[in-house]
Design a protein around this nucleic acid. Sequence first.
DNA 1: CAAGAAATCAGGATTTTCCCGATTGTGTAT
DNA 2: ATACACAATCGGGAAAATCCTGATTTCTTG
Lengths: 217, 217
Amino acid sequence: MTIKVMLADDHKIVREGLRKLLEKYPDIQVIAEAEDGRKAMQFCKELLPDVLIMDIAMPGLNGIEATRQIVAENQGIKVIALSMHSDRRFVMEMLKAGALGYLLKDCAFEEMVQAIRSVTRNRTYLSPMLTDTVIKDYVRLFSKNEFSVFSILTPREREVLQLLSEGKTTRQIAIDLKVSVKTVETYRQRIMDKLGIYSIAGLTKYAIREGLTSPEK
Amino acid sequence: MTIKVMLADDHKIVREGLRKLLEKYPDIQVIAEAEDGRKAMQFCKELLPDVLIMDIAMPGLNGIEATRQIVAENQGIKVIALSMHSDRRFVMEMLKAGALGYLLKDCAFEEMVQAIRSVTRNRTYLSPMLTDTVIKDYVRLFSKNEFSVFSILTPREREVLQLLSEGKTTRQIAIDLKVSVKTVETYRQRIMDKLGIYSIAGLTKYAIREGLTSPEK
DNA sequence: CAAGAAATCAGGATTTTCCCGATTGTGTAT
DNA sequence: ATACACAATCGGGAAAATCCTGATTTCTTG
């Protein structure tokens, strides 16, 4: 019984590299690649992978939101986050979103295999660099310190904020999310009211600071 | 004959500190403080300082553009840049804009006094950490490698871009710059066409990368 | 179950943007 | 000296986005 793995990362080269590396393991089979969160959601429903390796920083729909939705919609799927950041907030949010594993991009490749096997057996896996402290931090920070974008905005609002900060127009966002323009307008308004920031430029900077979008491109 | 100095920095505390430090020198007199580039321009015309200590990162009108305009309008005024950045591009642009001195914010205070006296005698002054390499780089980079915002956009366009990336509306920018809304629209359009970036979010990120605005606030 | 949060949409007035075009001044090249 | 590019400035008019004020539905949770 092979483990069906899907890769979600916006860099083609990364996906190809991982695929190549994973090929050597007969019990693991890469069945698909997705270049952003939305594609990942789509493919998940169609292909039912066992494990999803998910990058966090991706255009359109980032890994955290995508994970939240994928885990909600596909019971049994195991998500492993793959990120450059050891930032507590990312780890925490990813785990809250339902990821079972969290790998740092500079980890040894063997770790990934180990992680895949772990989550398949319904166990969690964190990069050693994270484990200890993170688990503690996670619990401790859970209740207080809730001033990040993740506590202020709803998931849908965060999605819209990310899209806005990627330069999408209201109309385009409406199409992407398959809702009406009016709905998107409402979200923007709510986001602005909640954050007290009334310009796209300001929202963009906020999104950059909170890691919802990258300052590049 | 005392040297009349004006301070332009967006942080009140910095201005106050410098003023206090400069007080000890009987040949130097701080006659005014400005909290942004535009105020600096205004005061310069009214108060005719001999030396202007100019921070680079300031809201509204940054130190580089301000210097460019001040030097053009007030012959004889000596501008000394004061910056956290030793980034070549800043130094180069500041010198091209007409500054005679460039101080790093982590320099010893005595350097500032020395710089003030230097420029008063029509000589340049650069923080020792910069001198050598910078002068060479400056000359070398002058002609080629012109792909920064400073070569692509006109001064006016850069001003508008900065204001846009600070969250100002077209209307507000028109008021700030005392031109019509239509003019500002044209600038925005031109900026977008030149950069190939057609969203405020994208422009904001570009401005951040080029140092025209800060990612904070 | 009631209350609140989240997601969704609409109408209509007001602004902004977008896509054309135009004028004026200032250098710079021929 | 004349032409020519470039910078700065402004306008008209159609299209799109915003703002403001609701409103409905679903879901969770005490």
